[in-house]
Design a protein around this nucleic acid. Structure first.
Lengths: 228, 228
DNA sequence: TTTAAAATATGATAATTATCAGTTTTTCAG
DNA sequence: CTGAAAAACTGATAATTATCATATTTTAAA
Protein backbone atom coordinates (compact mmCIF):
# COMPACT_ATOMS: atom_id res chain seq x y z
CA UNK A 1 0.00 0.00 0.00
CA UNK A 2 1.57 3.24 -1.21
CA UNK A 3 1.92 6.45 0.71
CA UNK A 4 -0.28 9.43 -0.13
CA UNK A 5 2.70 11.81 -0.02
CA UNK A 6 4.27 9.99 -2.94
CA UNK A 7 1.09 9.26 -4.84
CA UNK A 8 1.00 10.69 -8.36
CA UNK A 9 -2.75 10.36 -8.65
CA UNK A 10 -3.21 12.86 -5.84
CA UNK A 11 -1.72 15.59 -8.01
CA UNK A 12 -4.80 15.38 -10.21
CA UNK A 13 -7.33 16.38 -7.59
CA UNK A 14 -8.02 18.63 -4.62
CA UNK A 15 -5.79 16.55 -2.34
CA UNK A 16 -2.85 18.36 -3.94
CA UNK A 17 -3.73 21.33 -1.74
CA UNK A 18 -3.01 19.42 1.44
CA UNK A 19 0.22 20.00 3.35
CA UNK A 20 2.90 17.35 3.78
CA UNK A 21 1.82 16.77 7.38
CA UNK A 22 -1.82 16.37 6.47
CA UNK A 23 -0.92 13.87 3.80
CA UNK A 24 1.17 11.79 6.18
CA UNK A 25 -1.72 11.67 8.59
CA UNK A 26 -4.20 10.70 5.88
CA UNK A 27 -1.83 8.12 4.50
CA UNK A 28 -1.77 6.39 7.87
CA UNK A 29 -5.52 5.88 7.99
CA UNK A 30 -6.49 5.41 4.37
CA UNK A 31 -7.27 1.96 3.02
CA UNK A 32 -6.64 0.76 -0.51
CA UNK A 33 -8.83 -1.76 -2.28
CA UNK A 34 -9.36 -3.51 -5.60
CA UNK A 35 -12.79 -3.46 -7.21
CA UNK A 36 -13.87 -5.87 -9.93
CA UNK A 37 -15.73 -4.80 -13.06
CA UNK A 38 -19.44 -4.65 -12.30
CA UNK A 39 -18.96 -4.38 -8.55
CA UNK A 40 -20.98 -1.71 -6.73
CA UNK A 41 -18.78 0.66 -4.69
CA UNK A 42 -21.73 2.28 -2.96
CA UNK A 43 -25.45 2.48 -3.55
CA UNK A 44 -28.16 5.11 -3.14
CA UNK A 45 -29.11 5.52 0.49
CA UNK A 46 -25.83 4.24 1.91
CA UNK A 47 -23.83 6.19 4.44
CA UNK A 48 -20.42 6.80 2.93
CA UNK A 49 -18.36 7.81 5.96
CA UNK A 50 -15.54 9.02 3.75
CA UNK A 51 -14.37 9.76 0.24
CA UNK A 52 -12.77 7.62 -2.43
CA UNK A 53 -9.73 8.57 -4.49
CA UNK A 54 -9.56 6.63 -7.74
CA UNK A 55 -6.07 5.18 -8.39
CA UNK A 56 -7.00 3.12 -11.41
CA UNK A 57 -10.02 2.29 -13.57
CA UNK A 58 -13.35 3.90 -14.35
CA UNK A 59 -16.73 3.80 -12.64
CA UNK A 60 -20.17 5.04 -13.55
CA UNK A 61 -22.19 7.16 -11.13
CA UNK A 62 -25.90 6.71 -11.63
CA UNK A 63 -29.33 7.23 -10.13
CA UNK A 64 -32.45 5.13 -10.44
CA UNK A 65 -35.43 6.91 -11.95
CA UNK A 66 -38.93 6.22 -10.64
CA UNK A 67 -39.68 4.55 -13.99
CA UNK A 68 -37.06 1.92 -13.17
CA UNK A 69 -34.25 2.95 -15.44
CA UNK A 70 -30.78 3.88 -14.27
CA UNK A 71 -29.52 7.25 -15.45
CA UNK A 72 -25.73 7.59 -15.58
CA UNK A 73 -24.84 11.07 -14.38
CA UNK A 74 -21.11 10.92 -14.72
CA UNK A 75 -18.09 8.81 -15.33
CA UNK A 76 -15.32 8.94 -12.77
CA UNK A 77 -11.75 7.99 -13.59
CA UNK A 78 -8.20 7.79 -12.24
CA UNK A 79 -7.39 10.90 -10.25
CA UNK A 80 -11.00 11.82 -9.52
CA UNK A 81 -12.51 12.04 -6.06
CA UNK A 82 -15.76 10.23 -5.39
CA UNK A 83 -18.25 10.99 -2.64
CA UNK A 84 -17.16 14.51 -1.74
CA UNK A 85 -20.73 15.73 -1.82
CA UNK A 86 -21.99 13.32 0.80
CA UNK A 87 -18.98 14.33 2.87
CA UNK A 88 -19.98 17.98 2.81
CA UNK A 89 -23.69 17.80 3.49
CA UNK A 90 -23.34 14.68 5.64
CA UNK A 91 -26.25 12.96 3.93
CA UNK A 92 -26.60 9.44 2.64
CA UNK A 93 -25.46 8.88 -0.93
CA UNK A 94 -27.89 10.15 -3.54
CA UNK A 95 -26.16 8.16 -6.25
CA UNK A 96 -24.78 4.71 -6.98
CA UNK A 97 -21.21 4.02 -8.09
CA UNK A 98 -20.44 0.92 -10.15
CA UNK A 99 -17.08 -0.12 -11.59
CA UNK A 100 -17.14 -0.42 -15.35
CA UNK A 101 -13.72 -2.05 -15.39
CA UNK A 102 -11.31 -3.36 -12.76
CA UNK A 103 -10.35 -0.58 -10.39
CA UNK A 104 -8.10 0.35 -7.54
CA UNK A 105 -9.49 2.85 -5.09
CA UNK A 106 -8.34 4.46 -1.83
CA UNK A 107 -10.80 5.20 0.94
CA UNK A 108 -10.21 8.14 3.27
CA UNK A 109 -12.39 8.17 6.41
CA UNK A 110 -14.67 11.14 6.90
CA UNK A 111 -13.24 12.26 10.23
CA UNK A 112 -9.74 12.62 8.85
CA UNK A 113 -10.64 14.73 5.88
CA UNK A 114 -13.36 16.85 7.46
CA UNK A 115 -10.75 18.23 9.80
CA UNK A 116 -8.63 19.43 6.88
CA UNK A 117 -11.72 20.83 5.23
CA UNK A 118 -12.33 23.06 8.24
CA UNK A 119 -8.71 24.00 8.91
CA UNK A 120 -6.94 24.29 5.56
CA UNK A 121 -8.43 27.14 3.48
CA UNK A 122 -6.47 26.13 0.38
CA UNK A 123 -8.00 22.69 0.48
CA UNK A 124 -11.48 24.08 1.07
CA UNK A 125 -11.14 26.52 -1.83
CA UNK A 126 -9.97 23.71 -4.04
CA UNK A 127 -13.03 21.60 -3.19
CA UNK A 128 -15.20 24.67 -3.64
CA UNK A 129 -13.82 25.18 -7.14
CA UNK A 130 -14.40 21.51 -7.94
CA UNK A 131 -18.02 21.77 -6.90
CA UNK A 132 -18.52 25.02 -8.80
CA UNK A 133 -17.14 23.44 -11.91
CA UNK A 134 -19.27 20.29 -11.47
CA UNK A 135 -22.31 22.49 -11.05
CA UNK A 136 -21.56 24.35 -14.24
CA UNK A 137 -21.26 21.15 -16.21
CA UNK A 138 -24.40 19.75 -14.58
CA UNK A 139 -26.27 22.84 -15.79
CA UNK A 140 -24.98 22.26 -19.29
CA UNK A 141 -26.13 18.64 -19.16
CA UNK A 142 -29.61 19.76 -18.07
CA UNK A 143 -29.84 22.04 -21.09
CA UNK A 144 -28.73 19.28 -23.44
CA UNK A 145 -31.10 16.72 -21.95
CA UNK A 146 -34.00 19.14 -22.12
CA UNK A 147 -33.40 20.62 -25.55
CA UNK A 148 -31.43 18.23 -27.73
CA UNK A 149 -32.60 15.17 -29.62
CA UNK A 150 -31.23 11.73 -28.80
CA UNK A 151 -29.10 11.88 -31.93
CA UNK A 152 -27.56 15.19 -30.89
CA UNK A 153 -26.90 13.88 -27.40
CA UNK A 154 -25.19 10.74 -28.70
CA UNK A 155 -22.88 12.80 -30.92
CA UNK A 156 -22.08 15.09 -28.03
CA UNK A 157 -21.42 12.18 -25.69
CA UNK A 158 -18.95 10.62 -28.12
CA UNK A 159 -17.03 13.89 -28.31
CA UNK A 160 -17.03 14.11 -24.51
CA UNK A 161 -15.66 10.58 -24.22
CA UNK A 162 -12.88 11.46 -26.65
CA UNK A 163 -12.00 14.61 -24.69
CA UNK A 164 -12.09 12.95 -21.32
CA UNK A 165 -10.64 9.50 -21.98
CA UNK A 166 -8.76 9.91 -25.26
CA UNK A 167 -7.94 7.10 -27.68
CA UNK A 168 -5.22 4.51 -28.17
CA UNK A 169 -2.74 4.18 -31.06
CA UNK A 170 -5.49 2.65 -33.22
CA UNK A 171 -7.79 5.63 -32.54
CA UNK A 172 -10.05 3.48 -30.34
CA UNK A 173 -11.64 5.32 -27.41
CA UNK A 174 -10.01 4.44 -24.09
CA UNK A 175 -13.35 3.55 -22.56
CA UNK A 176 -15.48 0.53 -23.35
CA UNK A 177 -19.13 0.96 -22.55
CA UNK A 178 -21.99 -1.44 -23.13
CA UNK A 179 -24.79 -0.25 -25.42
CA UNK A 180 -27.00 -0.16 -22.37
CA UNK A 181 -24.57 2.16 -20.54
CA UNK A 182 -24.40 4.42 -23.59
CA UNK A 183 -28.20 4.55 -23.64
CA UNK A 184 -28.26 5.31 -19.92
CA UNK A 185 -25.84 8.20 -20.34
CA UNK A 186 -27.80 9.93 -23.07
CA UNK A 187 -31.16 8.98 -21.56
CA UNK A 188 -32.76 6.82 -24.22
CA UNK A 189 -33.79 3.20 -24.84
CA UNK A 190 -30.96 0.75 -25.53
CA UNK A 191 -32.44 -0.05 -28.95
CA UNK A 192 -32.47 3.61 -29.91
CA UNK A 193 -28.81 3.99 -28.92
CA UNK A 194 -27.90 0.92 -30.98
CA UNK A 195 -29.80 2.18 -34.00
CA UNK A 196 -28.15 5.59 -33.87
CA UNK A 197 -24.68 4.09 -33.48
CA UNK A 198 -25.37 2.02 -36.61
CA UNK A 199 -26.55 5.16 -38.37
CA UNK A 200 -23.37 7.06 -37.45
CA UNK A 201 -21.35 4.06 -38.62
CA UNK A 202 -23.21 3.95 -41.95
CA UNK A 203 -22.65 7.69 -42.39
CA UNK A 204 -18.94 7.11 -41.76
CA UNK A 205 -18.52 9.42 -38.77
CA UNK A 206 -17.53 6.61 -36.40
CA UNK A 207 -16.11 3.10 -36.58
CA UNK A 208 -17.62 0.44 -34.31
CA UNK A 209 -16.37 -3.02 -33.46
CA UNK A 210 -18.06 -4.42 -30.38
CA UNK A 211 -17.27 -2.08 -27.55
CA UNK A 212 -14.43 -0.49 -29.49
CA UNK A 213 -15.51 2.85 -30.88
CA UNK A 214 -13.35 5.19 -32.97
CA UNK A 215 -14.30 8.68 -33.97
CA UNK A 216 -13.56 9.19 -37.64
CA UNK A 217 -14.81 12.75 -38.08
CA UNK A 218 -15.04 14.89 -34.99
CA UNK A 219 -16.09 17.98 -37.00
CA UNK A 220 -19.04 16.03 -38.42
CA UNK A 221 -19.98 14.83 -34.94
CA UNK A 222 -19.87 18.40 -33.71
CA UNK A 223 -22.22 19.45 -36.50
CA UNK A 224 -24.62 16.65 -35.62
CA UNK A 225 -24.46 17.65 -31.94
CA UNK A 226 -25.49 21.17 -32.93
CA UNK A 227 -28.39 19.94 -35.00
CA UNK A 228 -27.20 19.68 -38.61
CA UNK B 1 -30.78 51.75 1.46
CA UNK B 2 -30.90 49.35 4.41
CA UNK B 3 -27.99 47.97 6.35
CA UNK B 4 -26.93 44.36 5.88
CA UNK B 5 -26.59 43.84 9.64
CA UNK B 6 -30.31 44.46 10.05
CA UNK B 7 -31.45 42.77 6.87
CA UNK B 8 -33.90 39.91 7.42
CA UNK B 9 -33.34 38.45 3.97
CA UNK B 10 -29.73 37.72 4.85
CA UNK B 11 -30.85 35.18 7.45
CA UNK B 12 -32.07 32.97 4.61
CA UNK B 13 -28.72 32.43 2.95
CA UNK B 14 -25.02 31.90 3.50
CA UNK B 15 -24.50 35.52 4.48
CA UNK B 16 -25.88 34.60 7.90
CA UNK B 17 -22.49 33.02 8.62
CA UNK B 18 -20.70 36.35 8.39
CA UNK B 19 -19.61 38.17 11.53
CA UNK B 20 -21.00 41.54 12.58
CA UNK B 21 -17.80 43.27 11.45
CA UNK B 22 -17.85 41.61 8.05
CA UNK B 23 -21.48 42.61 7.56
CA UNK B 24 -20.78 46.23 8.43
CA UNK B 25 -17.98 46.30 5.89
CA UNK B 26 -20.15 44.70 3.21
CA UNK B 27 -23.03 46.98 4.00
CA UNK B 28 -20.83 49.97 3.29
CA UNK B 29 -19.97 48.89 -0.22
CA UNK B 30 -23.09 47.07 -1.39
CA UNK B 31 -25.51 48.72 -3.78
CA UNK B 32 -29.25 48.18 -3.89
CA UNK B 33 -31.29 48.32 -7.06
CA UNK B 34 -34.79 47.82 -8.45
CA UNK B 35 -35.30 45.59 -11.46
CA UNK B 36 -38.41 45.65 -13.65
CA UNK B 37 -40.22 42.53 -14.79
CA UNK B 38 -38.54 41.24 -17.94
CA UNK B 39 -35.27 43.07 -17.30
CA UNK B 40 -32.06 41.08 -17.73
CA UNK B 41 -29.85 41.17 -14.61
CA UNK B 42 -26.91 39.54 -16.35
CA UNK B 43 -26.39 37.56 -19.51
CA UNK B 44 -24.24 34.61 -20.58
CA UNK B 45 -20.66 35.67 -21.11
CA UNK B 46 -20.79 38.72 -18.87
CA UNK B 47 -18.28 39.31 -16.11
CA UNK B 48 -20.23 39.52 -12.88
CA UNK B 49 -17.68 41.07 -10.52
CA UNK B 50 -19.83 40.20 -7.53
CA UNK B 51 -22.88 38.43 -6.23
CA UNK B 52 -26.51 39.43 -5.95
CA UNK B 53 -28.67 38.96 -2.88
CA UNK B 54 -32.37 38.93 -3.72
CA UNK B 55 -34.42 41.18 -1.43
CA UNK B 56 -37.68 40.90 -3.30
CA UNK B 57 -39.16 39.21 -6.37
CA UNK B 58 -38.31 36.21 -8.52
CA UNK B 59 -36.00 35.72 -11.46
CA UNK B 60 -35.38 32.89 -13.89
CA UNK B 61 -31.88 31.62 -14.56
CA UNK B 62 -31.55 30.18 -18.04
CA UNK B 63 -29.15 29.09 -20.73
CA UNK B 64 -29.48 29.26 -24.49
CA UNK B 65 -29.30 25.92 -26.24
CA UNK B 66 -27.56 25.63 -29.61
CA UNK B 67 -30.98 24.97 -31.14
CA UNK B 68 -32.02 28.48 -30.15
CA UNK B 69 -34.31 27.76 -27.23
CA UNK B 70 -33.79 29.05 -23.73
CA UNK B 71 -33.75 26.41 -20.99
CA UNK B 72 -34.68 27.66 -17.54
CA UNK B 73 -32.41 25.94 -15.04
CA UNK B 74 -33.73 27.43 -11.86
CA UNK B 75 -35.91 30.02 -10.27
CA UNK B 76 -34.32 32.32 -7.74
CA UNK B 77 -36.37 34.12 -5.10
CA UNK B 78 -36.16 36.39 -2.08
CA UNK B 79 -33.34 35.32 0.18
CA UNK B 80 -31.38 33.48 -2.50
CA UNK B 81 -27.90 34.38 -3.62
CA UNK B 82 -27.24 34.75 -7.32
CA UNK B 83 -23.89 34.44 -9.06
CA UNK B 84 -21.91 32.65 -6.37
CA UNK B 85 -20.54 30.18 -8.91
CA UNK B 86 -18.95 32.82 -11.11
CA UNK B 87 -17.48 34.29 -7.98
CA UNK B 88 -15.75 31.06 -7.05
CA UNK B 89 -14.27 29.99 -10.34
CA UNK B 90 -13.80 33.56 -11.54
CA UNK B 91 -15.27 32.83 -14.93
CA UNK B 92 -17.78 34.77 -16.98
CA UNK B 93 -21.43 33.90 -16.35
CA UNK B 94 -22.57 30.66 -17.91
CA UNK B 95 -26.19 31.59 -17.43
CA UNK B 96 -28.62 34.44 -17.93
CA UNK B 97 -30.79 35.92 -15.18
CA UNK B 98 -34.08 37.62 -16.06
CA UNK B 99 -36.63 39.11 -13.66
CA UNK B 100 -40.03 37.45 -13.93
CA UNK B 101 -41.62 40.12 -11.75
CA UNK B 102 -40.48 43.40 -10.24
CA UNK B 103 -37.50 42.84 -7.99
CA UNK B 104 -35.20 44.47 -5.50
CA UNK B 105 -31.65 43.15 -5.44
CA UNK B 106 -28.43 43.98 -3.60
CA UNK B 107 -25.08 43.75 -5.32
CA UNK B 108 -21.96 42.89 -3.31
CA UNK B 109 -18.65 43.49 -5.14
CA UNK B 110 -16.40 40.49 -5.66
CA UNK B 111 -13.40 41.87 -3.80
CA UNK B 112 -15.34 42.37 -0.59
CA UNK B 113 -16.81 38.94 -0.42
CA UNK B 114 -13.87 36.94 -1.74
CA UNK B 115 -11.92 38.10 1.27
CA UNK B 116 -14.47 36.64 3.65
CA UNK B 117 -14.56 33.47 1.61
CA UNK B 118 -10.86 32.99 2.21
CA UNK B 119 -10.78 34.10 5.83
CA UNK B 120 -14.04 32.98 7.44
CA UNK B 121 -14.30 29.15 7.51
CA UNK B 122 -17.94 29.22 8.66
CA UNK B 123 -18.87 31.28 5.65
CA UNK B 124 -16.90 29.04 3.30
CA UNK B 125 -18.50 25.90 4.71
CA UNK B 126 -21.91 27.48 4.32
CA UNK B 127 -21.26 28.23 0.65
CA UNK B 128 -19.82 24.74 0.24
CA UNK B 129 -23.02 23.22 1.60
CA UNK B 130 -25.08 25.41 -0.69
CA UNK B 131 -23.14 24.20 -3.70
CA UNK B 132 -23.32 20.56 -2.59
CA UNK B 133 -27.05 20.87 -2.22
CA UNK B 134 -27.43 22.60 -5.60
CA UNK B 135 -25.38 19.85 -7.18
CA UNK B 136 -27.59 17.18 -5.69
CA UNK B 137 -30.71 18.82 -7.02
CA UNK B 138 -29.07 19.36 -10.42
CA UNK B 139 -28.36 15.62 -10.58
CA UNK B 140 -32.00 14.91 -9.82
CA UNK B 141 -33.09 17.26 -12.57
CA UNK B 142 -30.79 15.49 -15.03
CA UNK B 143 -32.42 12.16 -14.19
CA UNK B 144 -35.89 13.60 -14.64
CA UNK B 145 -35.05 15.31 -17.91
CA UNK B 146 -33.46 12.16 -19.26
CA UNK B 147 -35.98 9.60 -18.10
CA UNK B 148 -39.37 11.19 -17.62
CA UNK B 149 -42.00 12.14 -20.17
CA UNK B 150 -43.08 15.76 -20.63
CA UNK B 151 -46.30 14.98 -18.77
CA UNK B 152 -44.40 13.58 -15.79
CA UNK B 153 -42.07 16.57 -15.77
CA UNK B 154 -44.95 19.05 -15.83
CA UNK B 155 -46.64 17.32 -12.88
CA UNK B 156 -43.36 17.32 -10.98
CA UNK B 157 -42.70 20.97 -11.76
CA UNK B 158 -46.10 21.99 -10.43
CA UNK B 159 -45.38 20.18 -7.17
CA UNK B 160 -41.99 21.88 -6.98
CA UNK B 161 -43.56 25.30 -7.49
CA UNK B 162 -46.01 24.58 -4.69
CA UNK B 163 -43.21 23.50 -2.34
CA UNK B 164 -40.95 26.38 -3.16
CA UNK B 165 -43.34 29.30 -3.59
CA UNK B 166 -46.50 28.16 -1.82
CA UNK B 167 -49.99 29.47 -2.52
CA UNK B 168 -52.20 32.34 -1.42
CA UNK B 169 -55.47 32.21 0.52
CA UNK B 170 -57.30 31.18 -2.68
CA UNK B 171 -54.89 28.28 -3.23
CA UNK B 172 -53.29 30.06 -6.20
CA UNK B 173 -49.55 29.43 -6.62
CA UNK B 174 -47.44 32.40 -5.53
CA UNK B 175 -45.62 32.46 -8.85
CA UNK B 176 -47.04 33.52 -12.18
CA UNK B 177 -45.23 32.07 -15.15
CA UNK B 178 -46.02 32.46 -18.83
CA UNK B 179 -46.78 29.27 -20.75
CA UNK B 180 -43.50 29.78 -22.56
CA UNK B 181 -41.59 29.88 -19.28
CA UNK B 182 -43.33 26.73 -18.09
CA UNK B 183 -42.35 25.04 -21.36
CA UNK B 184 -38.79 26.24 -20.95
CA UNK B 185 -38.55 24.83 -17.44
CA UNK B 186 -39.69 21.35 -18.39
CA UNK B 187 -37.94 21.40 -21.75
CA UNK B 188 -40.74 21.14 -24.26
CA UNK B 189 -42.53 23.19 -26.91
CA UNK B 190 -44.88 25.90 -25.66
CA UNK B 191 -47.82 24.24 -27.43
CA UNK B 192 -47.12 20.94 -25.69
CA UNK B 193 -47.04 22.62 -22.29
CA UNK B 194 -50.36 24.35 -23.03
CA UNK B 195 -51.97 21.11 -24.16
CA UNK B 196 -50.85 19.24 -21.06
CA UNK B 197 -52.03 22.02 -18.75
CA UNK B 198 -55.46 21.79 -20.43
CA UNK B 199 -55.38 18.04 -19.98
CA UNK B 200 -54.60 18.35 -16.25
CA UNK B 201 -57.37 20.90 -15.98
CA UNK B 202 -59.85 18.60 -17.73
CA UNK B 203 -58.83 15.74 -15.44
CA UNK B 204 -59.47 18.02 -12.49
CA UNK B 205 -55.99 17.88 -10.92
CA UNK B 206 -55.35 21.61 -11.35
CA UNK B 207 -57.35 24.79 -11.82
CA UNK B 208 -56.10 27.32 -14.36
CA UNK B 209 -57.11 30.90 -14.93
CA UNK B 210 -54.61 32.79 -17.01
CA UNK B 211 -51.33 32.73 -15.13
CA UNK B 212 -53.07 31.72 -11.90
CA UNK B 213 -52.62 28.03 -11.27
CA UNK B 214 -54.02 26.11 -8.29
CA UNK B 215 -53.20 22.53 -7.46
CA UNK B 216 -56.39 20.65 -6.67
CA UNK B 217 -54.96 17.21 -6.04
CA UNK B 218 -51.28 16.97 -5.12
CA UNK B 219 -51.51 13.18 -4.59
CA UNK B 220 -52.79 12.76 -8.14
CA UNK B 221 -50.03 15.00 -9.47
CA UNK B 222 -47.49 12.91 -7.60
CA UNK B 223 -48.88 9.78 -9.20
CA UNK B 224 -48.66 11.35 -12.64
CA UNK B 225 -45.08 12.44 -11.93
CA UNK B 226 -44.21 8.85 -11.14
CA UNK B 227 -45.76 7.57 -14.33
CA UNK B 228 -49.32 6.48 -13.50
C1' DT C 1 -15.20 -27.05 -25.86
C1' DT C 2 -19.87 -26.74 -25.11
C1' DT C 3 -23.78 -24.40 -23.87
C1' DA C 4 -26.73 -21.23 -21.63
C1' DA C 5 -27.13 -16.53 -20.74
C1' DA C 6 -26.36 -11.95 -21.90
C1' DA C 7 -25.59 -8.48 -25.20
C1' DT C 8 -26.31 -6.74 -29.67
C1' DA C 9 -29.03 -6.04 -33.59
C1' DT C 10 -33.19 -5.36 -36.58
C1' DG C 11 -38.07 -4.89 -37.92
C1' DA C 12 -42.79 -3.48 -37.05
C1' DT C 13 -45.67 -0.67 -34.64
C1' DA C 14 -47.37 2.46 -31.12
C1' DA C 15 -46.81 6.42 -28.36
C1' DT C 16 -44.98 10.78 -27.59
C1' DT C 17 -43.66 15.19 -28.93
C1' DA C 18 -42.61 18.92 -32.32
C1' DT C 19 -43.94 21.80 -35.92
C1' DC C 20 -46.85 24.55 -38.67
C1' DA C 21 -50.97 27.06 -39.46
C1' DG C 22 -54.48 29.52 -37.91
C1' DT C 23 -57.91 31.39 -34.27
C1' DT C 24 -59.11 33.49 -30.04
C1' DT C 25 -58.01 35.96 -25.98
C1' DT C 26 -55.36 39.03 -23.24
C1' DT C 27 -52.40 42.85 -22.51
C1' DC C 28 -51.06 47.34 -22.77
C1' DA C 29 -49.49 51.69 -24.92
C1' DG C 30 -51.52 55.72 -26.77
C1' DC D 1 -61.54 53.19 -24.52
C1' DT D 2 -59.29 51.34 -28.70
C1' DG D 3 -56.39 48.94 -31.66
C1' DA D 4 -52.22 46.47 -32.31
C1' DA D 5 -49.14 43.22 -30.51
C1' DA D 6 -48.30 39.47 -27.65
C1' DA D 7 -49.82 35.43 -25.49
C1' DA D 8 -52.74 31.58 -25.26
C1' DC D 9 -55.02 28.10 -27.55
C1' DT D 10 -56.50 24.34 -31.02
C1' DG D 11 -56.13 21.23 -34.91
C1' DA D 12 -53.63 18.67 -38.36
C1' DT D 13 -49.64 16.48 -39.42
C1' DA D 14 -44.80 15.10 -39.28
C1' DA D 15 -40.87 13.62 -36.81
C1' DT D 16 -38.88 11.41 -33.08
C1' DT D 17 -38.55 7.90 -29.80
C1' DA D 18 -40.26 3.83 -27.12
C1' DT D 19 -41.87 -0.67 -27.00
C1' DC D 20 -42.40 -5.33 -28.29
C1' DA D 21 -40.97 -9.27 -30.80
C1' DT D 22 -37.48 -11.87 -32.47
C1' DA D 23 -32.97 -13.06 -34.53
C1' DT D 24 -28.06 -13.13 -34.22
C1' DT D 25 -23.73 -12.68 -31.98
C1' DT D 26 -20.77 -12.54 -28.04
C1' DT D 27 -19.50 -13.78 -23.44
C1' DA D 28 -18.51 -16.52 -19.77
C1' DA D 29 -19.38 -20.37 -16.75
C1' DA D 30 -19.40 -25.41 -16.35
Amino acid sequence: MGKCEQCIVRQLNSLKSLTKEELVRISACKTSRFVKKGEVIFDEGEHLNGVYCISEGICKVSKMSSNGRDQIIHLVKKGDILGERSLINDEVANLKATAINDMEICFIPRDEIINDLEKNPDFTMSILKDLASSLKSADNVIVDMAQKTVKQRLAEMLINLENRFGHDEDNVLNIHLSREDIANIIGTATESAIRLLSEFKKEGVIKVKGKNISLISIPKLKKIAQGF
